[in-house]
Each structure stands twice: as structure tokens, then as C-alpha cells.
């Protein structure tokens, strides 16, 4: 039974990823819909980032001593200034490790 459950979840996950690419979406979509696609990376990755920053834990706002939040703000600043993936990750991670350990 557990195997069936794993396979069923695998099939559902694959279908979620494949259905739009299966050809059911025409490439002649209305322009406004095509333009909406450019917002998808921002609109979906932002909630993941926000969630990973532990701003709300057990229904409490954690804004003070939230080192992940502070480090993320530093990373945003670095990304704005240098637009460099490696610098953003390195400085953000270094800030986080320093704040959490000292």
C-alpha cells in the first residue's frame, strides 16, 4: 500500500509539471497572458524566500533577533549593488553565520 501511495504521489507530481508542456497550451496565447508569465518566477520564489526567513513561527512575528531576516536584507542589498549570485550568497551566508555564532 505504501508503494502505491508513493507511486500515486509521483504520478501526480509529474503531471503537475508536465501538463502545461504536453501541448494543451497553445503558443498563440493572448498577449496579456503571455506577459503574465514574466511575473511567475518572482511571484512563486518570493513566498518560498519569505517562508524560509521564519518571519512567522507558531503564529508569532519574529522580527527581533531574526538573523535570517537580517542576513536576507544584507543579501538583497548586495544583489542590488553587485548583481552577482556568488557574492550575494557568500555575504548573506557569512552574515548569518557571524550573527548566529557571536
Amino acid at each position: 500500500m505504501t508503494w502505491s501511495l508513493i507511486v500515486l504521489c509521483g504520478v501526480i507530481t509529474f503531471l503537475i509539471r508536465f501538463i502545461p508542456l504536453s501541448g494543451i497550451i497553445s503558443s498563440d496565447l493572448p498577449l496579456f497572458l503571455k506577459q503574465s508569465f514574466k511575473y511567475i518566477p518572482l511571484a512563486v520564489l518570493t513566498p518560498i524566500i519569505v517562508s524560509d526567513l521564519s518571519i512567522i513561527e507558531n503564529k508569532n512575528f519574529l522580527l527581533i533577533d531574526n538573523f535570517k531576516l537580517y542576513s536576507a536584507l544584507i543579501a538583497i542589498f548586495v544583489a542590488l549593488i553587485w548583481n552577482n549570485v556568488l557574492a550575494t550568497i557568500s555575504i548573506g551566508m557569512a552574515s548569518f553565520l557571524i550573527m548566529s555564532n557571536f
Partner: peptide, 10 residues
């Protein structure tokens, strides 16, 4: 999340 920040900010 840091990588995602580096990707979406630009």
C-alpha cells in the same frame, strides 16, 4: 533562499 534572492532581485 539566499540563492533565490540573488536570482529574483535583478
Amino acid at each position: 533562499p539566499l540563492t533565490f534572492i540573488a536570482i529574483i532581485i535583478p
